[in-house]
Write a protein that binds this DNA or RNA. Structure first.
Lengths: 215, 215
DNA sequence: AAACTGCCAACTGTCGACAGTTGACAACAT
DNA sequence: ATGTTGTCAACTGTCGACAGTTGGCAGTTT
């Protein structure tokens, strides 16, 4: 389960920085000072620059010439644009999953849903971890490597914007229902329904992010 | 009309290298020697490495640890996977374009189609340039910046794989018909039809690339 | 001849230092 | 007080050099 174990310093720096950006340890809007971070990581500026450029290409940092790298702040228009991309990708993935899923894919999806229910009934909040796991399992079932790759990147960016997201119980419940419905459509091999449900699901999630963004 | 005019050497190197990779000046399968290319461009290895990493993130180069950067060779599975991604993105773009297009978007699309016809009647082959222009205009009409961004990257990768693509006249004609049909659906605001036509269009293009890949 | 071993050249990964640019602050003029 | 200009520190962009790794080749062994 250990993430690939990069040998190069640049690769390690990518992992560390990505973690720090996603967890908010480096807060949105803040600048990344090359010399400072390089010293903190115990490496030189060369590999660090490559790491920064890499994260920028993933959308986790924005580069400003002669100014440095910044963690992009959440923005209403950005959320909408990002969810349009996510919808395009995940709806396609849902369709493909409906026609390509194996039986073990199906079991995995049902297992994630079941664990979510268990967790919810135990009174604990629906952890984002399980939501991510569900979507991950679904795109794996779609068996389209390039689409999967892009979905992962987009979901990462969504996590980045998720900082200011309160956990609304009713929304959690709705999400779990959506997931169940999706699994059913995929089990039936009903691509059209899978796509429709996914679109509705993401539309709801997007709306919730937008409202919780307005405080 | 000058492309952004990068000030940094790394930015310039990206433009030059991208050009050389896409035109096949650096042929698929070949290695990119850092010191050699750096000298040829008159820059140091630092900026060049950043340029190489950038192109790798665009999928135009593949990185092998301690071995260097290679231009990826065309592969049947890769073509299929890439077109699944492209279909997901461009179908979504077609739907959005159908509901968001302005009148000037429509005029631009019709203009590109008309120029294609003119060119075709003049006996000249349907230039890929016009095909690209059509799809570019369409995604601009969709007004979804993040989707547009990804479509551009995917199309670039398609161009890279296009090296061994013979120009089949019947295919050219079919493509132009598809384009006309797409514009009509977008003009009518018919998102469903636009998506369907786009899917059929890309499916045909993909099939043609696959057959011309088998020699 | 085939397989193994040890060496070597070429190249990537990394570092520390220099040069050029930017934004901010202070001094000055109005 | 307000706007302008000059100066400066901090930081990014770039370079040349060193270290570690890789693949191949020659020499050796069976």
């Amino acid at each position: 389960m250990t993430p690939p174990l990069h040998l190069s310093l640049a690769g390690q720096a990518v992992d560390v920085l990505r973690e720090q950006v996603l967890t908010g340890e480096i807060p949105p809007g803040s600048r990344v000072n090359e010399v400072e971070v390089a010293q903190k990581l115990g490496i030189s500026r060369g590999p660090l620059r490559e790491a920064i450029r890499h994260l920028a290409s993933e959308g986790l940092l924005t580069l400003v010439p002669h100014r440095g790298a910044f963690v992009p702040a959440a923005d209403s228009d950005e959320v909408k644009a990002l969810f349009e991309l996510r919808t395009a990708l995940e709806c396609a993935a849902a369709e493909l999953a409906a026609s390509r899923r194996t039986d073990v894919d199906l079991v995995r999806l049902q297992e994630v849903c079941a664990e979510s229910r268990r967790n919810y009934r135990a009174g604990q909040p629906f952890p984002y971890r399980l939501d991510l796991a569900f979507h991950q399992t679904l795109i794996d079932a779609a068996r389209s490597p390039r689409i999967a790759e892009q979905v992962r990147l987009v979901q990462q960016r969504v996590v980045l914007l998720r900082s200011a997201l309160e956990d609304d119980p009713s929304h959690q419940h709705a999400s779990m229902d959506d997931h169940d419905e999706l699994v059913k459509a995929i089990a039936d091999g009903d691509a059209a329904t899978a796509s429709t449900v996914m679109r509705r699901h993401l539309s709801r999630v997007c709306a919730q992010m937008l409202t919780s963004l307005d405080h």
